[in-house]
Design a protein around this nucleic acid. Structure first.
Length: 824
RNA sequence: GCCCGGAUGGCGGAAUUGGUAGACGCAAGGGACUUAAAAUCCCUCGGUCGCAAGGCUGUGCCGGUUCGAGCCCGGCUCCGGGCACCA
């Protein structure tokens, strides 16, 4: 291995050794501090991309650092293996999704191993393995029993291209998150997870996650969308039923002059008078045909139709015409809105269009609104008017008082409303986890008894690309005896959303081979929570919300004792090239294979860590990669060239080393401190690497290298250098460690420690400012106090011209840093 | 519209608590070595004035606080992201 740096040989050698020695195997050990480090597992799409390289390089720095620091590190890897691309590929290649998936896994596993990531491969899991998904079926059944999984007929998001249902979280601006097709609404019988049951806790706990980026928490809070208000009943003339509305603006109740219902509101047709029927039906049809994306666009024209019915404002007794309005959503609140045109912009526009009355109930301070002349709704706070006993109160106060009043009078009650909807998990696709349910004509919905689990995904489906879900066409699978009555029944052929698998894989890693249940409680208790989770920001409200939900569900099912799965979250930025995210369609993709081939994995790792701090986008630069490669060559050469000069092991004799040696040691110990802090406290690997580069420059420039008196100092420098490099470029560092004569691996060497006394400066450079402007620098002993610093500064020749004829008003001293002389 | 980020040389970025702006790297220019090239090594490198010492100026814009502001405060501009007819 001598001579020129050959990453290929070095990397092959160490990867083989790590594998043979099982260097990264994690075993529960209560005597040691555990550290569970996890990166979001990949979808086996074919080959790894630079985003993976970056994500997993970041993780590996932390894993290797923590290991060297003495932690018992769990660092697993696996495959989010169910999903549609496999099915599409099967259709295209006239093959099977399983074949495609497992081939991809094999290939990508090889790629990850070539990157030298320190995973415990014994814990590898793939979610499409029966060993994994069968436990998910058990969890489903237990959720069903608790009412947390249920079936319901409703309008759902349907992607016509993927031919499947999508969760709300998977619809982005009205389009499918995966294929970008326009999503349509379809009425279907679908399985849901009752995530809304946990809305309050999911929201509450966002305030107990200090290790998460604020913007992810904000996004989750917005997504959950809690609002506090009232439900108020409005009696309908000539009917016994009442219209229930939800409002956060009960302070405007006295100004409600009409009622708006969603066109899908169950009472819409029931309330419509015969003479209005034709126009109402026409309107409902028209709204239904409009797709949801367009209908909910901001600039969409507000339209409605009068039902002919009237309800009554319960506090003013005013007759309120009941309209259907296209902007009222059926799935938020109660699907009915009390319209207050003076204080809500939508209601205002609607009222002006249909000539409906306006009533001002909140006056802005120092202004009088005139319903005849206002051009927009006044939505801010103000003073109550035309509101009976509440007149004169500030609207904020009135909000509380009116809520209390409504409850007292039995007209309404305080409620909390969430934007979060239940998680629709049914997918009309083959390559997923079968939902373990049977439909019997006599018994209805029958969950598969636990003893009959697992429901095995049949391998003999046909992938033609036509005629919907291939699973529904496997007769042997579909036709089954009812577990209750024994009559012929049908299996559910929908599979679960793949986000279900990724909602608990981090728990399965704690005991991946456990055969008595989804997880070994004792082991989960040792490893969980994940101390550091790393992944892309794109999962802020998808995976990261579902995983939190699932953890709470599993806790309540008795599987684990934790509330939250991930203590600390790091969201890494995207990999950008030529101003755009790397993608095949843009043609700006850098293939990790080519990079490894040309420069080696260490260079690929080093550059992706050096070019930007982890949370920022990384601008890929081929020349920057060259630079990282050059640096590694320099380190290689430095160690090998210096090797003959190093003496035998021994203690550094602090008394006999000269000034140069002392200075070098100072740099070394300062660098150890800096690198340790940058990794441990900030995850700023770019500055840690920069500090190591500076140290290399210093060692290279160290002239009395060949003075035998300095041999041990140089040796210390090189050994520290190599150990500091381990987390970033583990192959080269391991090799150089052995070149330096160490039999045992870097894992045994431990993380280098620094001596504050050695790192301490003997002299300090003090900046001298006049009126805040830098004018000179003076050197003082490190022990110098304020007075000494001031004296040295004032005695400096270079500042004299700036003080000529002026009076020193004040001298400010920042110990060890600067002296600012204020003159005037 | 609302809520988060962000803006620093030719480029990626550094400046950790208000205290030397531009660390480290890339690119560029000059030089050494070489028959030559590559590789490597050395020097220069925000702008501007100056032979130089050095001065002035400079962190998106305007203002403020402070002995001192890239950092804090007020008001903008632009860019990125999230949510969005949510009653």
């Amino acid at each position: 291995m001598e001579g020129k740096y050959s990453p290929k040989n070095v990397e092959k050698k160490w990867q083989k050794l790590w594998e043979e020695r099982k260097s990264f195997k994690a075993t529960e050990d209560r005597s040691r501090e555990k550290y569970y480090l996890l990166e979001m597992f990949p979808y086996p799409s074919g080959r790894i991309h630079m985003g993976h390289v970056r994500n997993y390089s970041i993780g590996d720095v932390i894993a290797r650092f923590k290991r060297m620091k003495g932690c018992n590190v769990l660092h697993p890897m696996g495959w989010d293996a169910f999903g549609m691309p496999a099915e599409n590929a099967a259709i295209q290649n006239k093959s099977h999704p399983a074949k495609w998936t497992y081939e991809n896994i094999d290939y990508m596993r090889g790629q990850l191993k070539k990157m030298g990531f320190s995973y415990d491969w014994d814990r590898e899991l793939a979610t499409c393995n029966l060993d994994y998904y069968k436990w998910e079926q058990l969890i489903f059944l237990q959720m069903y029993r608790k009412g947390l999984a249920y079936k319901r007929n409703s309008f759902v998001n349907w992607c016509p291209t993927c031919e499947t249902v999508l969760a709300n979280e998977q619809v982005e601006e009205g389009c499918c998150w995966r294929c970008d097709s326009a999503v349509v609404q379809k009425e279907l019988d679908q399985w849901f997870f009752r995530i809304t049951e946990y809305a309050e806790e999911l929201l509450e706990h966002t305030h107990k996650l200090p290790g998460w980026p604020e913007r992810v928490l904000t996004m989750q809070r917005n997504w959950i969308g809690k609002s506090c208000g009232c439900e108020i009943d409005f009696p309908v003339e000539g009917h016994l039923t009442k219209i229930k509305v939800f409002t956060t603006r009960q302070d405007t109740l006295y100004g409600a002059t009409f009622m708006s219902l969603a066109p899908e509101h169950p009472m819409a047709l029931e309330l419509t008078l015969p003479e209005n029927r034709a126009s109402v039906e026409e309107f409902i049809e028209r709204v239904k045909r409009t797709d949801k994306a367009r209908r909910t666009a901001e600039d969409f024209e507000k339209e409605g139709v009068f039902t002919g019915a009237f309800c009554v404002n319960p506090v003013t007794n005013r007759r309120m015409p009941v309209y259907l309005a296209n902007f009222v959503l059926t799935d938020y609140g109660t699907g009915a809105v009390m319209a207050v045109p003076t204080h809500d912009q939508r209601d205002f526009e609607f009222a002006r269009k249909y000539g409906l009355p306006l009533q001002v109930v909140i006056q802005p301070e120092g202004e009088t609104l005139d319903p005849e002349t206002v051009t927009a709704a006044y939505t801010a706070d103000g003073v109550m008017v035309n509101s009976d006993r509440f007149d004169g109160l500030k609207s904020g106060v009135a909000k509380e008082k009116i809520a209390d009043f409504l409850e007292r009078e039995g007209i309404g009650k305080k409620t909390v409303n969430f934007r979060l909807r239940d998680w629709g998990i049914s997918r009309q696709r083959y390559w997923g986890n079968p939902i373990p349910v049977i439909y019997c004509d006599l018994c209805g919905v029958v969950p598969v008894p636990e003893k009959d689990l697992p429901v095995v995904l049949p391998m003999d489906a046909v992938f033609s690309g036509e005629g919907g879900n291939p699973l529904a066409m496997v007769e042997d699978f579909v036709n089954v005896a009812c577990p209750q009555c024994g009559e012929l029944a049908r299996r559910e052929t929908d599979t679960m959303d793949t986000f279900v698998e990724s909602s608990w894989y981090f728990l399965r890693y704690c005991s991946p081979d456990f055969t008595a249940g989804p997880l070994d409680k004792e082991k989960a208790e040792y490893w969980m929570s994940v101390d550091q989770y790393i992944g892309g920001i794109e999962h802020a409200v998808l995976h990261l919300l579902y995983a939190r939900f699932f953890t709470k569900v599993l806790r309540d099912l008795g599987y684990c004792a934790i509330d939250e799965p991930f203590t600390n979250l790091l969201t890494q930025g995207m990999v950008i090239k030529d101003g755009a995210k790397m993608s095949k369609s843009k043609g700006n993709v850098v293939d990790p294979n080519a990079l490894i081939e040309k420069y080696g994995a260490d260079t690929a790792r080093l550059f992706s860590l050096f070019a930007a701090p982890p949370e920022k986008d990384l601008d890929w630069s081929d020349q920057g990669v060259e630079g990282s490669y050059r640096f590694l060559n320099r380190v290689w050469k430095l160690v090998h060239d210096t090797l003959p000069l190093l003496g035998h092991a021994g203690q550094i004799d602090t008394m006999s080393i000269g000034e140069g040696g002392k200075a070098l040691r100072r740099t070394v110990h300062k660098t150890i401190r800096k690198v340790t802090e940058d990794i441990e406290e900030r995850f700023h690997f770019n500055t840690a690497i920069a500090a190591i580069m500076e140290m290399v420059n210093t060692v290279q420039a160290f002239e009395p290298k060949n003075d035998p008196a300095n041999a041990l100092v140089v040796k210390e420098a090189l050994e520290s250098l190599v150990l500091l490099l381990v987390p970033f470029v583990p192959h080269m560092a391991s090799e150089l460690w052995s070149v330096l004569g160490h039999e045992e691996g870097v894992e045994q060497a431990g993380w280098p420690s620094f001596d504050p006394a050695v790192a301490a400066d003997e002299e300090l450079l003090v900046v001298v400012q006049i009126n805040g402007k830098l004018r000179s620098k003076v050197i003082v002993p490190a022990s110098a106090g304020e007075q000494e610093m001031k004296d040295a500064a004032l005695a400096d020749e270079r500042i004299k011209p700036f003080m000529d004829g002026k009076v020193v008003k004040k001298v400010i001293c920042v110990p060890g840093k600067l002296v600012n002389i204020v003159v005037g």
